[in-house]
Design a protein around this nucleic acid. Structure first.
Lengths: 192, 192
DNA sequence: CACGCTTGTGATTGACCACTCACAAATATA
DNA sequence: TATATTTGTGAGTGGTCAATCACAAGCGTG
């Protein structure tokens, strides 16, 4: 599975390509193990490079983590934008809600990383990054939906409940109380 | 600050007293550092005992973590019960909501630990513990409030939003978008 | 006092970790 | 081809960590 050709005479990637790949791999690592639990050695191994090179590319474990967090939030915003496309008002809100739900089910890594991000908010830089990303999400949804304060709040509240429910795997491993809890949380119920 | 008398001839505690104290200290440690980041050495030092004794009392770091999680959920349920007292219906729901908000502001440790718990749900035993605790919360609120599915769902969704908002310190360090987001999340708005 | 039970520790171990540095190999450029 | 730049690594450093074990010290009971 290693991409390294056998003997020697390896062809090289640009630093930027490597960074992209390492970010991808690091997302998985931090999402499943948390910040402290994540290992630069494992990240390097999974990315097919040496561990010192991870430090060359990102400076420190902490900076790598910040980059991962930031990218996760950027991706989420991009997903919102794609889902809302040229819609507006309630329709946009509903489209975003549906897309978010699907994404979470399809790619639990992003969700898990988000939770790790909240849990790591004791760190000032992590907190700043999370706040900045969240701000962009809120302002985007406000702008595209034009909905009132309460509807926006409700929208995000439901998203957060969806997050924790998925982290506890209430979807993959359903129980009656969980199903009941998630029933009132469907995107087709955003209108007042 | 150490409780140990200077020379020798120390008076002893019962194992149960120790366990209680260690649980308290470990809650702080895991809440601020996460599971992997939490250190049994620091917990022992903060509790004023030797590190090996932590293992004597709890068997392993993992078991200690589970005990901490479990106690946190138990405390939350107890808090719900106290708040609801002899109330029922909407009144009970509102009382619980208010108490939860106040508790989170007053004691951020519980909140932080909850987030760490969600983030650690990849671990099967942690997940089982979280699910069991959450189930008790949901069923209690359902029983005491008698409210319909959607109201209950909304109640917990708002709680989750309150959680992440507090983790990002939107309360202590307010910004306009955050304030807007939290406005629709007040306990006095639970009725339809 | 002697005996057993509970409470408690010092010393250590092997594994892992983030991070550094000197150096090598590929590639671009002249 | 010679030189400079970028990409990349092997070998190590000091530190921390969870967990173990043999052993000590207080305490209740005969």
């Amino acid at each position: 599975m290693t991409t390294t050709p056998p003997t020697s005479g390896t062809t090289r990637s640009t630093a930027s390509e490597r960074r992209t790949h390492v970010l991808e791999v690091a997302t998985r690592e931090f999402a499943t193990r948390g910040y402290e639990g994540g290992s630069t050695e494992r990240i390097a191994a999974a990315a097919g490079i040496s561990q010192p090179y991870v430090f060359r590319l990102f400076g420190s474990k902490h900076k790598l983590f910040l980059a991962v967090i930031e990218q996760c939030l950027d991706d989420t915003l991009a997903m919102f934008a794609t889902a809302a496309a040229d819609l507006q008002g309630e329709a946009a809100l509903q489209a975003i809600g549906e897309a978010y739900g699907e994404r979470i089910l399809a790619n639990p890594m992003m969700l898990q990383l988000q939770l790790v991000g909240y849990a790591s908010c004791d760190d000032e830089l992590v907190r700043a990054s999370m706040r900045a990303g969240y701000r962009r999400l809120v302002e985007y949804v406000e702008r595209v939906s034009g909905a009132d304060e309460e509807t926006i709040s409700l929208f995000f509240a439901r998203g957060m409940l969806l997050n924790v429910a998925t982290s506890m795997r209430l979807d993959r491993d359903p129980v009656d109380w969980g199903t009941r809890l998630m029933e009132g949380c469907r995107p087709e119920r955003y209108s007042p």
